[in-house]
Design a protein around this nucleic acid. Structure first.
Lengths: 227, 227
DNA sequence: TAGTTATTTTAGCATTTCCTAATTCACCTG
DNA sequence: CAGGTGAATTAGGAAATGCTAAAATAACTA
């Protein structure tokens, strides 16, 4: 008699920590205590305490004074939360009139409360979308996530033809501004010039040309589209 | 400079207690500690502790060894939760294919996480429904709730013509059975007979006759429809 | 009315999650 | 390589919520 119990239920806090650690360690290997603290807006000692509990539970690995990494189990849990979040964002945007700049907050609270069933019903009703409103890939039910080969606009070569694929922020003010500028996922653009000393990048869109400061350019992830 | 702060945010537990107290005291005046404990599936001492905190916050009034009642503020908060719950039930049923017997559980978790905005968008998308899938009235945004004059089928007079308006349970098994029998809100029925000694009530529907045991009959709230 | 019973409350703890203050550690610089 | 600096951890606590066991109270019954 195998008891096929899925992972035990996690608390809201634990889910938030796992998500944060996933995002922070997706680039380099380890997430630092202080970065987790900043990202969740809690104190560093709070993180130390939670880190201890999470590594005892086997969700993360902790190398003292170095940082933490997700275990396979932790990664699975994190991707599940990210799927929930992104499906919710698409659903609220497509179905209930949310804007891409306001939907993050609502999804952030709902993701801890919805059942698997509800998420899958939403996903199905939407035709199983693969990207959220910001262009971020939605993990599959099986926990796979697309790894796209993107360059940030801040690093793109002069003259390159690009397709904007993903906007790397959830900040409403930045998102509103970008939408006004027509800088939304799917748009085609060409890099015409970049000012020296970390200066802005100039791009031409169908709708005209834009001057994009370095901070924003770093948030715009693009696919290089031939020629 | 008036700080027009709405009520402070309540925790999930507090919201659950207020809802339970509302339901338990809607008939008689006071909700008993032990009834609250049973309804929330916690121990009586836990209730005593929470009751102390809630009355210090001004959400309830506590008469020791007698029970508790909601204050105006507590009632407002409870009705807000009940609106959320019922709007969610209608939304999930109408839009995402939930059945009336499974929707309660999902709504019970979501009601603590949704924003006011989301609830009102759902309500609007549904055409501002006035009743949930079980026929229970949905409080308005202003906190008003319809008080209908209903009799339970167990008390209805022999020969009466009734319209079933509300089903007073969220138990999935009972709801499934009732739906199979065609005993859903809106249906018309006539009381033909009642067995003595708390025996079953016999009713005739368009679809045929039904024998309804006392326990279920007490859950079926009906409006007397002339002659 | 006195005793029994059922309900309610108090006492004392455990857990989760957060905090501030103090300490420890790793690393870099002179 | 000795300090110094900044990051991380430990120490010690608070608040919310739950529990069991014991005490207090109300209510019923004989």
């Amino acid at each position: 008699m195998h008891a096929v119990l899925g992972e035990p239920p996690l608390t809201r806090s634990v889910e938030d920590y796992l998500k944060a650690i996933y995002h922070l360690s997706s680039q380099g290997g380890f997430a630092a205590t202080s970065d987790i603290a900043a990202s969740l807006e809690v104190s560093a000692p709070s993180v130390s305490g939670m880190v201890k509990r999470l590594s005892e539970t086997g969700l993360i690995e902790h190398v003292p004074y170095r940082g933490v990494q997700l275990t396979a189990q932790g990664r699975r849990a994190a991707l599940k939360m990210i799927r929930r979040h992104r499906v919710l964002e698409v659903y609220l945007t497509q179905t209930l009139g949310y804007d891409w700049d306001g939907v993050h907050e609502e999804a952030d609270r709902l993701e801890h409360a919805v059942s698997d069933t509800l998420i899958e019903r939403m996903a199905h009703a939407l035709g199983d979308p693969r990207y959220d409103p910001h262009g971020a890939p939605i993990p599959t039910v099986e926990g796979e996530i697309e790894e796209a080969d993107l360059v940030s606009l801040a690093d793109a070569k002069i003259g390159a033809s690009l397709e904007l694929r993903q906007v790397g922020t959830e900040d409403p003010a930045r998102l509103r501004y970008l939408a006004e500028q027509g800088l939304v996922p799917g748009v085609s653009l060409r890099v015409t010039e970049r000012q020296p000393f970390n200066g802005p990048t100039l791009v031409s869109l169908e709708r005209g040309t834009r001057i994009v400061g370095r901070e924003l350019a770093q948030l715009l992830w693009c696919r290089v589209s031939g020629s």
